[in-house]
Design a protein around this nucleic acid. Structure first.
Lengths: 236, 236
DNA sequence: AATCTTAAAATGGTTGACAATCTCGGGCGG
DNA sequence: CCGCCCGAGATTGTCAACCATTTTAAGATT
């Protein structure tokens, strides 16, 4: 009876707003997750740092409850690891694991959902993609890497969400934070304009609604050349 | 300073014990997760069922805290989906999504970790794999599908854990419950002995420590023919 | 019959208190 | 001097009772 209605498939849009602002209507817990996540990804918390519940709850002005939930969530996003009665520590991601595991998984997810999305995307959805591209352009003008990555991932999340594939979206949500952290590290090396242009092409491909074209552009987009061979592990 | 020591990489073995017994030493929360998870996978809770915190906490004799954590965890395993102030409902997985998304991801994970594991696995690890095979044989004799699947996934988790690749293990842990549910549905159709034999071959391949051989056997093992074409969506 | 109101049901979050467990450093014996 | 044991302190895990917020469904009204 109480089945999730189709409209629920278009999951909550909370993921879009990445800024620290946080709508006052969203549960506090979510805000804590966001805050800690950005703190980790932005490097304020470094791999190896311990995350103490009481310290975090004091910092964010909540009780330990929401903090515990946030830590568990971040554990599922691979940003921290926790041990019973020993607490949580911040994790790093090795370039190798991102390239060999996370990116291939991302490709699997997107291949599947882009094709599915073709059938269901409305002009409104396309407009939403256009908005992300515009945001990328703005980011380019301001040389703001954070905003660029944000809009980049936003673009992809829109399509993945539009596919209406529950588990695909769910898995995407557990891996994008790590990809985001990786982008912050290396997207720097690429030209902003190149990133924007690739998404323009991607959007155009989607509008053709031709699976072959979409897949071709998608693979070209994601299979970017390996980052500057340097940088080794950077494990916690 | 407080870096996770290498020994921690061999993550907690809790995942192995799937029975309802539950060591008295593990935090209650974990037991709740296990209990609800098995309830869902075994079909006691069906897709669309609502999971009420108070009901669950009453059933398991805990407070709402651990139950909330369990629900969040299960949400990250794609078994449940929850909406703010509206609660959690049990999800189903479509065969299509398992075959097109989850299994390919699994393949990515295992390809990567099996190769890495080759270098680090000890004779002791191999023995542990042998144990799982023995358990599969037992399951075969008793015609116990549950035990078979349990040992099957146990086998793979051992190798993935042995690879010491943090994120690979983490992602594996978020997808195996869904794969497990899928196996319950279709492994039925396969011969128990075939499953056991495949793992014997896999173990032998690992013992050669030759990446090419291991990869070949792995792909053969995982890329099983699509299940009986029947059975459509089965979404919640 | 459709809409508005209202009360019940659940979740989200708080507080304060304990129990269980780990960590670390000091003292003890070898 | 070194290693081991032990207890104190720190931190996590859990509980219980409570209130705010929101959804949901049943009535009541028009």
């Amino acid at each position: 009876m109480t089945t999730p209605t189709p409209s629920d498939l278009r999951l909550a849009p909370e993921t879009t707003a990445i800024a620290e602002a946080g709508a006052k209507t969203t549960p506090r817990g979510k805000q804590v997750i966001e805050a800690v996540r950005t703190a980790i990804i932005s490097g304020r918390f470094e791999p190896g740092d311990r995350l103490i519940e009481s310290a975090l709850s004091a910092e964010f002005g909540t009780s330990r409850g929401p903090v515990r939930e946030a830590l568990r969530q971040l554990e599922n996003e691979g940003l921290v690891m926790s041990f019973p009665y020993r607490g949580a520590v911040v994790l790093g991601v090795s370039d190798e694991e991102v390239q060999e595991v996370l990116i291939p998984i991302r490709l699997t997810l997107e291949r599947y959902s882009f094709v599915r999305a073709i059938a269901t995307m409305t002009d409104d959805d396309f407009a939403e993609l256009g908005k992300q591209i515009w945001l990328m352009e703005q980011a380019g003008k301001q040389n703001d890497l954070i905003k660029l990555v944000e809009a980049d991932l936003g673009f992809h999340e829109i399509v993945i969400s539009a596919s209406g594939q529950l588990h695909t979206v769910q898995i995407w949500r557990t891996i994008w934070p790590r990809i985001r952290a990786y982008f912050y590290r290396y997207e720097r090396a690429r030209s902003f304009e190149a990133t924007v242009e690739e998404h323009r092409v991607l959007l155009a491909a989607l509008q053709t609604r031709d699976p072959a074209i979409v897949l071709a552009e998608l693979e070209r987009h994601i299979d970017v050349p390996a980052p500057p061979a340097a940088a080794k592990v950077r494990r916690a």
